[in-house]
Design a protein around this nucleic acid. Structure first.
Lengths: 356, 356
DNA sequence: GTCCCGCTTTGAACCGGTTCAGTAGCCGGG
DNA sequence: CCCGGCTACTGAACCGGTTCAAAGCGGGAC
């Protein structure tokens, strides 16, 4: 019975089946359930396939039947390419990719604008949303499609897993460290607080309107520590820049260091910002930590290599990635919350304030 | 005419079609060719879909019919997770992801062991092979499937595009820079030359058996420069380490610096290795560049931030990524060769040899 | 009133497999 | 010699859409 084994010259499973006079099911089995075939026939199938130049079942078709793609998606709140200039995101990606490797999963980076055009059609089984504030379009695409997903560093969402850290506590530990050293004039170098790409000194009103979760939580942490030490939060200047790379840190720090009285310690919301602050200190001819203390957040590799080595709050970026990926593989626990530990790492960029 | 609109409770295109009493083609058109439907019917379809909780055509099924996935694959020669600890690879990835973003393509990172298990089934339209030496299994999977691909930093392959740099010339320029400064005792810090994970001093015989293309080409470049300067290549020690991160550079450099007479300049095959060498110099109490000159290769961001800032050979990592991705999108030119420029960047880590 | 045209909508083939309930054939046991 | 049970293989349904030739239909031109 002639089936359609040779349509348009393309070699399909049916081509092989016809060539051998066996059913398509048999050819399929040769690849997917070799033990169900007699060794003899199986070899014949495979040999014929080779001769015909058949590369095995088309993954797309197989996937359609099976319903499983064997791929994990990853969406990032900024354009995906930004992730590669953020050392913390790179570590996170590394953690995710480790798991994918072990599980023979592909890792699909989903970019393509905030509207979620790519997210709507990306071929994945589940999605990791590495976003402080889940992006409307992209997230909607995921939810509509009914894909399992976990949110990392973002808000808890019903039906979705969650991985994050205690930003507030981490921030507080950084501030407390400086306060314990005796600092009383602090400046904060913030990543964006409100999503308006504004730059400048964020007053209390602006802080109260915080849009980004991490920024909000860290501000609260700093504030709690400052107030516990009996100081006034309103006296602490908060410089906000967008985007928030090293250069932003440098400019924020320059602005803070221009104030009189000059702060004796700078708290940055990320290591990249802190490294920029170190550069600004050098620009200003200030020695760290003698004249100025600087503390960061993240503990990226560059922090330890900095001159001086940066005191910072370590968060387990790579582990966050591993955890997020693992969570999606164990369906049972997708709704769990995973809050990973933070730890203050004291290095050489902090010390007592200069004696007046 | 009852079609199978309601199988197993899952809402498919057929469900929507049945609910409205229209054909499946009509529902499909509502999404893919809205202009072919009367506005009235189109709206009815979309409304009904919404009510039924239908999230639009299943991407997998659509893809199967259309034959296009809208995704670019990327295979890396080591486990994919290693790429994230190589700053050069990260920049490359960034370049690729920029193009994907603009073209609304997903970027699929293909790991999963050398056997190519994932490569064989990954859902992609084309593949970028970022590999010095194309990995048997993974590459075979790609070729068998007949996917278009481009090789980056690897050998030219028939039918495949190619993007790379002139490693030989880049290496030669680094060596010549040192020779011009007056150095006569050089040491080379090499990445793996032969694929046996061996560590030690690579003699001429081993160099001749070079397996990795970049290592081989760069050695030739160094050698040409050295011999042009009237020196003997055999006098130049080549230290090989595997893997080839910063720590390897440090150990290689330590070995080279232990030799008597001590080299006055170290040429590293990557910036990571060179940064390790800088650390080794500090370990040994040598000032760079006063007592020792160090030159790298790549010009990753950390090179400019190093103390002292690293002299190195710049290659356009990000542009390589962009170029590779673009190449795959313009089918016409897939067979092109793209050799990108390299440039010696002189910074503070090189200077004249110490006067004896 | 008739014919032709264009806009909508549809039926059916197709994309390339997987799966599962059988069935044919073979072997051993009673 | 008959029956039960296995093994090896097959037929047909199914996965969830896209596409294109063709049909239906309403309206304008003559």
């Amino acid at each position: 019975m002639e089936t359609d084994g040779r349509r348009g010259g393309r070699v399909t499973l049916a081509t092989v089946a016809d060539a051998l006079g066996v059913s398509r099911a048999t050819v399929s089995n040769a690849y997917n359930h070799p033990e169900r075939l007699s060794p003899r026939l199986r070899d014949r199938v495979l040999d014929t396939a080779r001769e015909l130049g058949y590369a095995g079942p088309h993954p797309l078709a197989a996937t359609l039947s099976r319903g499983r793609v064997n791929a994990l998606g990853l969406v990032y709140d900024d354009p995906m390419s930004f992730a590669f200039s953020d050392p913390a995101a790179v570590l996170f990606l590394q953690g995710v990719s480790e798991v994918c490797e072990n599980e023979d999963l592909a890792l699909v980076l989903i970019s393509g604008g905030p509207a979620g055009a790519v997210a709507r059609v990306a071929l994945v089984d589940a999605v990791i949303c590495y976003c402080d504030v889940p992006i409307e379009g992209k997230l909607a695409a995921i939810v509509d499609r009914g894909l399992p997903f976990v949110v990392v560093d973002g808000p808890r969402l019903p039906g979705a897993g969650h991985v994050g850290i205690d930003d507030r506590r981490g921030a507080a530990s950084a501030a407390r460290h400086l306060l314990d050293l005796g600092h009383t004039r602090l400046g904060v170098i913030a990543m964006p607080i409100v999503d308006d790409e504004w730059e400048g000194t964020a007053d209390l009103d602006r802080q109260a309107r915080a849009h980004y979760r991490a920024a909000r939580e860290r501000l609260v942490g700093y504030r709690e520590a400052v107030e516990s030490a009996g100081l006034t939060w309103a006296d602490v200047s908060v410089e906000e820049r967008s985007p928030y790379g090293r250069d932003a840190g440098r400019r924020s720090a320059a602005a803070l260091l221009a104030r009189r009285p000059r702060p004796t310690a700078l708290i940055a919301m990320s290591d990249e910002l802190a490294l920029g602050a170190l550069a600004a200190a050098e620009d200003a001819g200030l020695a760290v930590p003698r004249d100025l203390s600087v503390v960061g957040f993240d503990d990226v590799p560059a922090a330890a290599d900095a001159h001086p080595a940066l005191t910072t709050v370590r968060q387990p970026h790579r582990e966050k990635g591993r955890r997020a990926a693992t969570l999606l593989l164990r369906a049972s626990s997708v709704d769990d919350e995973h809050r990973l530990p933070v730890e203050l790492i004291v290095r050489a960029s902090t010390g007592p304030p200069p004696s007046r």
